[in-house]
Design a protein around this nucleic acid. Structure first.
Lengths: 194, 194
DNA sequence: ATAATAACCAACCACTCGGTATGTTGCAAG
DNA sequence: CTTGCAACATACCGAGTGGTTGGTTATTAT
């Protein structure tokens, strides 16, 4: 990797972390510059504006990470159990910082979706991709599921609940609350089976 | 109501609306001053700081409105049906601005809970109150519900899902998505019955 | 050796923000 | 009539923001 590309990646990584911790608007370029030990000119050489940097973080850091994390459990032979294990494992492995800061994508969604169209469209696109992952997994094992299930609806329901649970645990700083909601969500998911 | 109290209430109302639309941090005092047609001195006569104004909005505008809205359907003779009707009615009556801006409390929670302790504690307190409303309603009709239900867990699950659905529809600006999640949520709620 | 370009630096700009200090008005009590 | 306080208004401050600009290296191609 060239020096320039190295610099760019470093900016992306640091920016992703800063945005995760402070939100997009509250993230100041100067804090990124300080942590990267570069000048403002260097940043504006690689990115034309703050918001373009935000888009790049979303597309090149958050999205791949997110889709990859969901892909694994859904590719399981039994995606129902895969999902449940994935969700409960999430509660166990959840670091303190994750409880406090919440999901980076969820945060960006809350903060920027109704403010900036560029963010909104990117978030929307990602949500549809994620929902499609779930729908595909459910269709694959539809023979073993209850009749009359609306797969897309179920997918959005699961994602909504998970987002809500993250939000809840974030504000309460209570890991246990998160675990409770996830436990109830697993009950719901397992009840999808015949 | 005295003139001074009138001024104070006007500030609270306008601030609540501005915070709902732009978030707390992004809400500038100047915009509130302009809409209220008052000076900065007037505002700082009634509130000692921006964050104290935010607390007042939370306690005197958002919280009463929110608890009142939930109390009604949960006081129904059949709170299960009351909740479902309440939720579906919410999707129908949902104005465009509400789809776009989301729930004011949910927004504040996302934005401020992990930034300011004052907000966090107030939000936490309110969430517990809301959950207690649900738990009370469920316990009241526990004879007609499935065995082995964890009422508190169910309460947080419902609230989480609703919050997540609001968040989802906000970013997607798609009312239909919200309706789908709510429809699935009603299926879940009705399945609580024996 | 020279020219060109990529990669970066540092100073600065215009602007907005929350907050404060001081000034002004109107009314009510003495 | 005047004193005093509630209820504002006005002017200003310092800090911080994203963004721009002109200059500086280091490397590479010719």
């Amino acid at each position: 990797m060239s020096d320039a590309e190295q610099t760019r990646q470093n900016i992306l990584t640091v920016a992703a972390d800063e945005i995760h911790h402070h939100g997009f608007k509250a993230t100041s370029l100067s804090s990124i510059l300080t942590r990267c030990e570069i000048s403002k000119g260097a940043l504006y050489y690689h990115f034309t504006s703050k918001i373009e940097l935000g888009y790049a973080v979303f597309e090149e850091v958050y999205t791949p990470m997110f889709l990859d994390v969901w892909q694994t459990p859904l590719s399981d032979e039994d995606p129902i159990e895969g999902l449940c294990k994935f969700l409960t494992a999430m509660t166990d492995e959840m670091a303190c910082s994750e409880v406090v800061c919440g999901c980076p994508l969820n945060n960006l969604c809350e903060e920027m979706a109704n403010v900036d169209e560029g963010f909104r469209l990117r978030i929307l696109c990602m949500q549809e991709q994620l929902n499609q992952l779930i729908v595909d997994a459910l269709e694959r094992i539809s023979d073993g599921l209850r009749e009359n299930l609306a797969f897309s609806q179920v997918g959005y329901f699961i994602v909504s609940t998970l987002n809500g649970a993250t939000s809840l645990s974030k504000s309460s700083r209570n890991k246990e609350l998160f675990q409770q909601v996830i436990a109830e969500l697993c009950l719901y998911i397992r009840a999808l089976k015949k």
